[in-house]
Amino acid sequence: MGFKLLSKLLVYLTASIMAIASPLAFSVDSSGEYPTVSEIPVGEVRLYQIADGVWSHIATQSFDGAVYPSNGLIVRDGDELLLIDTAWGAKNTAALLAEIEKQIGLPVTRAVSTHFHDDRVGGVDVLRAAGVATYASPSTRRLAEVEGNEIPTHSLEGLSSSGDAVRFGPVELFYPGAAHSTDNLIVYVPSASVLYGGCAIYELSRTSAGNVADADLAEWPTSIERIQQHYPEAQFVIPGHGLPGGLDLLKHTTNVVKAHTNRSVVE
């Protein structure tokens, strides 16, 4: 069995187990497998329904001669939608809004960016022009300005110390501490036991640490421990890039980060 097929099978099995364990909360999309990078042309966006009122959005972007996937989250909030992270750029984010209108038909009224990198804030200006209120932590807003990236308009308070959590509509926002970046936030959907790890969490097929220019490698494993301790009931975990899975993604990420750190020390 090929690795790609095995990865998709694991996603399907995880979703099936969740649907059985929580039949009222989960209505997993039966329309197909989780979209992969090879299936999404740059400039297009796919939506994948995880649970009743919960979707991931998947886009792709060219970077350094390669094409990478990027995940975000959409959560229903009454007759409105909360968006977590842009679709990595203005063109993708405009396509995301169009796809949401086509498939869901509810307005996106608020959006949260989970850290300051372009795959999370690139497209904020498109959201703002569409009347979406954009939010991020003060740290993310400051770092985005320093980096020359787009800056969300509103500040999220109460997320300055490791372990801080605040309720934001249908989700809980959690600051686990520094990891992929010093400002990275985690998003949890309690009604569906869905954990969105953003770039602080890796997919299972990833074996290298990737972009760690703004990471705190020493603190990252401790931050992941905080996530595990705060959300032990999480059933569906979405990484910032690639295929979702279960809580095993947290341990896998820790292993990859520690291996990278150990290699760096040896070198």
Results as ranks from 00 to 15, higher is better:
93 T>C: 13
119 D>S: 01
194 V>W: 02
201 I>R: 01
234 A>Y: 09
121 V>Q: 15
29 D>W: 06
2 G>T: 12
137 S>V: 06
157 E>P: 10
14 T>Q: 05
6 L>S: 12
23 P>S: 11
58 I>M: 15
179 A>Q: 00
5 L>K: 10
22 S>N: 07
176 P>E: 00
53 G>N: 04
69 P>D: 04
239 P>Q: 01
139 S>N: 13
177 G>N: 00
93 T>L: 02
36 T>Q: 10
138 P>M: 14
97 L>W: 03
157 E>I: 11
83 L>H: 01
32 G>F: 13
114 T>D: 04
132 V>W: 01
204 L>S: 13
202 Y>H: 08
3 F>Y: 05
67 V>Y: 03
264 S>Q: 15
61 Q>C: 09
86 T>A: 10
81 L>F: 10
137 S>E: 04
106 L>Q: 03
177 G>P: 00
49 Q>L: 08
143 L>K: 15
108 V>S: 07
201 I>A: 06
114 T>C: 02
259 A>Y: 04
165 A>E: 10
121 V>H: 01
201 I>P: 00
115 H>K: 00
84 I>S: 11
40 I>T: 09
253 T>A: 13
35 P>F: 03
163 G>W: 07
221 P>W: 13
218 A>G: 08
132 V>T: 14
67 V>N: 12
172 E>N: 15
100 I>F: 02
100 I>Q: 02
89 G>Q: 12
132 V>Q: 02
22 S>T: 14
261 T>S: 06
28 V>G: 09
38 S>E: 10
21 A>T: 08
98 A>L: 05
225 E>P: 02
100 I>A: 05
91 K>C: 03
130 A>Q: 15
177 G>Y: 01
28 V>L: 05
22 S>R: 08
127 L>Y: 02
202 Y>R: 12
104 I>K: 08
19 A>L: 12
130 A>C: 15
259 A>W: 07
212 V>I: 08
128 R>Q: 05
227 I>F: 03
217 L>C: 13
159 L>T: 05
61 Q>V: 11
233 E>L: 11
27 S>F: 04
79 D>W: 13
194 V>L: 05
3 F>C: 10
236 F>E: 12
141 R>D: 02
196 Y>L: 03
126 V>R: 08
187 V>E: 00
130 A>I: 15
149 N>M: 15
208 S>M: 05
250 L>V: 11
93 T>A: 07
129 A>F: 02
260 H>S: 06
147 E>M: 13
6 L>F: 12
74 I>N: 01
72 G>Y: 00
243 L>V: 07
160 S>E: 08
18 M>D: 03
187 V>Q: 00
199 C>A: 01
84 I>R: 01
257 V>W: 12
181 S>P: 00
49 Q>V: 07
253 T>C: 02
32 G>R: 09
142 R>G: 11
178 A>I: 04
188 Y>I: 09
25 A>D: 09
209 A>D: 07
259 A>E: 04
203 E>W: 03
133 A>P: 07
